[in-house]
Amino acid sequence: MKLKELFDRGEFVISSEVGPVKGAIPRDPDFVPPCQQEAQHLNGSVHAINVTDNQSAVMKLGSLAASVRLKAKGYEPIYQITCRDRNRIALQSEILTAYSLGIDNMLLLTGDHTNLGDHKEAKPVFDLDSVQLVRIAAELQEGRDMAGNPLMFQPDMFIGAVVNPNFQPLDLQLIKMHKKVDAGAQFFQTQAVYDDRVVDEFIAKAEAFGRPIQLGVVVLKSPQMGAYMNRNVSGISVPQAWIEEIGAAAKGDRKKKAAEMTGRFIKKHKSKFQGVHIMPLGWTDIVPDILAHAEIAPPRPSAG
């Protein structure tokens, strides 16, 4: 199902995120790969699940294989695809392949640089940027490839893109967001945000684009994680107040505290967005609790 249907109905769209395994999926039909295990924890709490594409440039199982597996098990994947590892031929072909394998939603990104990952000597491709990729995906849906050749059958998917509200100068990030909208982006997910002011400054300008936006939140599990993200995760900053609040909770209480903090933040801002994208970093079991704190009714279970 395309998330478009949910946004069009005015539903508050809840998504979360899983990463494919470092390795193949065994042929044993009873084997449950980790991404599917995580999806099971999220069942009933979210509408859709992002599947990351060699995130942080760390080589893993392809996002398409994992997306197809989740789809087969009844979950709604948001297939992520980045410009880092494929040229324009491969990117277009992947989009056609994804549609042909039943994928309905995709999120198109630039991708983290190879230098951040586990194959630092790889040739970074970046043949296209994310704006160009969105445009080309939209053109494929219109029945032609980027060279102008007609397609025999065209894909039909819901096209998402990302935006980073933390980016300074924000206006430069918004110029790019504007280009993505013009290129054909149908919905947005934001990078993780923790700061009320950042949310408000961003949404005041971004809502004018008239596209559904999901607020991105990453569950802050510990003060160490906050310090680590501030040091190492590009484009995200965690305010000191968050770090202190999670640090003040006893270790055994941190899951509860994290759910409360994340839920509180979502609750405060949910009316400004059309959905939320929760990145629980393995604490998938607290997602229902987060939604409860945010006073958001979870969607009905979709899979078994």
């Binding site: 230098n115 704006v131 990030q173």
Partner: peptide, 19 residues
């Protein structure tokens, strides 16, 4: 670092490149 033509990626921090 990514030879982007339509504007920055989201990765810059304090004006510095994510790389």
């Amino acid at each position: 670092a990514k030879s982007l033509l339509n504007g920055p990626c989201g990765g810059a921090e304090n004006g510095k490149c994510e790389v």
